[in-house]
């Protein structure tokens, strides 16, 4: 089952708008689901709360995860994604303002697939999003969808 949804966890409406704009600019036609805090991200992934009717079998192709999220911090969201067999193989790209060493370290320690710092310069930002889309949506081969009974 191929699914090409992008899940974007971003609480800043400006950053959301600019990311979407950059994606559109490079003709990324994938559906982008935007969640605005860490809890909503988890609800989406684990089909809880307002996403209770969603099928957990359909998971996004890539997750763009900010660190500084309300309610549940991005690093915590990452931890829970990796702790659950339904989501542990999902590609997660940390997309954040922070360049702090400890954030980078914590992200990789919790098996983030990539860590990208949002540049202030919008030209650089769109360039980053272009690379990101090209790499994760076109070049990168996602893991096969988990079959029940196959996960560890």
């Amino acid at each position: 089952m191929t699914n090409t949804t992008i899940l974007m966890a971003e609480d800043n409406p400006n950053d959301e708008e600019l990311t979407l704009r950059a994606l559109r600019k490079y003709n990324v036609s994938n559906e982008v689901v935007v969640v605005r805090d860490g809890q909503e991200a988890l609800d989406y992934l684990f089909c809880a709360g307002e996403y209770a009717s969603r099928s957990a079998n359909v998971q996004p192709q890539v997750i763009l995860l900010d660190i500084n999220l309300p309610k549940v911090n991005g690093l915590e969201v990452l931890k829970r994604i990796r702790a659950d067999k339904r989501t542990r193989t999902l590609p997660v790209v940390m997309l954040t303002s922070s360049a702090e060493e400890r954030d980078r370290f914590a992200a990789y320690e919790n098996h983030a697939n990539s860590y990208i710092r949002k540049p202030v310069d919008f030209d650089q930002f769109t360039e980053a999003v272009r690379h990101l889309g090209l790499y994760w949506l076109v070049l990168n081969q996602p893991p096969p969808a988990p079959r029940s009974g196959n996960g560890r």
Binding site: N12, N14, D15, E17, L18, R21, N68, T96, S97, S98, A99, E100, K118, P119, V120, D121, F122, D123, F125
Partner: peptide
């Protein structure tokens, strides 16, 4: 410095991004 790196950069990105837009 953490909040500087986070919170001060975000509006700047918006100013630059929407200027470009």
């Amino acid at each position: 410095s953490y909040s500087v790196s986070h919170d001060l950069r975000a509006p700047l990105r918006a100013i630059d991004g929407f200027s470009k837009a």
